[in-house]
């Protein structure tokens, strides 16, 4: 008998012989309640911090969405009304509808459809065709939009870039295409030239004399950090356009709202090309990278409420993971339609 056969036979025999205790559903139910309580407690603590920061900025809001009834709180455009109000959790797109996944992996339909732009003050903002929807109102004629926890920056068909929320920069007569935005400013792309627009004006990004990023296809702005990716490289810059660092690979990633962390994970194609699997958190300040095990190739990443969420793909199965020190499964979709945008 071969070694492998002997071990297999032994394991099979033990498997069949082991005494199985009776199933006690009440124990499992009690443990489920305990896990739920722990998660809610943790979520409530995190939520408190976010609300405190946002509330401090409410008085600075420029106003409601066009067409909104301002209501009794005239400066708060993100009123608790409209589609998706009162629903929490990371937004996902499942079978074409925008839903939110809470800490327990429970899905709640927001009633919205379209491309997820982001979450502002716990309200999902979507771009449905040229209609930007959020905060109980909408704006027509929008060609691009980017959200961060304190507001949304969008571009109209005439090129004007507008900001709803705290911080950000407005600009008329912008000739480039809006490709990224955050509370600190926004980025436009014209040809292969990326220009950053902040409170001090417009800055052409220095992407390196070696033309390492010849055709940028994504720009992310968070805090004072800008991350520009093309098909194979990542460049990290500051808002003035000065390059701070860069690396090869890692283009499927997401910059945190504070700009402190760029998280990335290899796709199936990158793993095939030899990139090490896992989730990598790059500290944009120190340049240090931390690796967390991730048992599948990445499809997309996003930040929500200070937490990192990774969507992986394995055949037709897509899995959403909540990642911190480790990655925990949050949702499994065997239909293969789950998306983060």
């Amino acid at each position: 008998m071969s070694e492998k056969t002997r071990i297999r036979t032994t394991l099979h025999e033990v498997e069949e012989a082991v005494a199985v205790p009776a199933y006690d559903g009440s124990v499992v139910a009690a443990r489920a309640r305990s896990i739920r309580r722990r998660r809610r407690t943790a979520g409530a603590l995190a939520g408190t911090a976010v609300v405190a920061v946002v509330a401090a900025g409410v008085g600075l809001l420029p106003g409601a969405w066009p067409g909104d009834d301002p209501g009794p709180v005239a400066t708060d455009g993100w009123a608790a009304a409209g589609p998706g109000a009162g629903v929490h959790g990371v937004p996902v797109v499942l079978d074409g509808s925008v839903q939110r996944v809470d800490d327990d992996g429970t899905l709640t339909d927001t009633g919205l459809r379209g491309q997820v732009v982001g979450v502002v003050r716990d309200r999902v903002v979507v771009l449905d065709g040229d209609r930007l929807i959020g905060a109980g109102g909408h704006v027509e004629g929008v060609v691009a939009a980017y959200a961060d926890p304190t507001g949304v920056t969008y571009q109209r068909a005439d090129g004007a870039v507008l900001r709803e929320g705290v911080g950000g920069v407005d600009a008329d007569g912008v000739t480039g295409r809006l490709v990224g935005a955050g509370a600190g400013g926004f980025a436009t792309l014209e040809g292969v030239v990326v220009t950053l627009h902040d409170a001090d004006g417009a800055h052409r990004l220095d992407l390196g004399s070696d033309a390492a990023t010849p055709r940028p296809d994504r720009v992310q702005v968070g805090g004072g950090t800008v991350v520009v990716t093309d098909s194979s490289t990542v460049s990290v810059l500051d808002l003035a356009g000065t390059r701070r660092s860069g690396f090869l690979g890692g283009t499927t990633g997401a910059l945190s709202a504070d700009g402190a962390t760029y998280a990335y994970a290899p796709t199936a194609a990158e793993v095939d090309r030899g990139m090490r699997p896992g989730l990598f958190s790059y500290d944009t300040g120190s340049g240090q990278t931390r690796r967390t095990a991730l048992p599948a190739a990445a499809l997309d990443l996003t930040w929500y409420d200070g937490g990192l969420y990774v969507l992986t793909e394995d055949g037709d199965t897509r899995t959403l993971w909540a990642c911190d020190q480790t990655c925990d499964q949050l949702l499994v979709d065997d239909g293969g339609t789950l998306g983060l945008r």
Binding site: A19, V27, R31, A32, S34, I35, V101, G105, V332
Partner: peptide
Amino acid sequence: HHQAEDLLQDVLARTCLRWGSIRD
């Protein structure tokens, strides 16, 4: 046995919470 019961109960509790989102 103790470790098996603990591990299985833990995984089942998490599965129970996500049962509604397991589409298949």
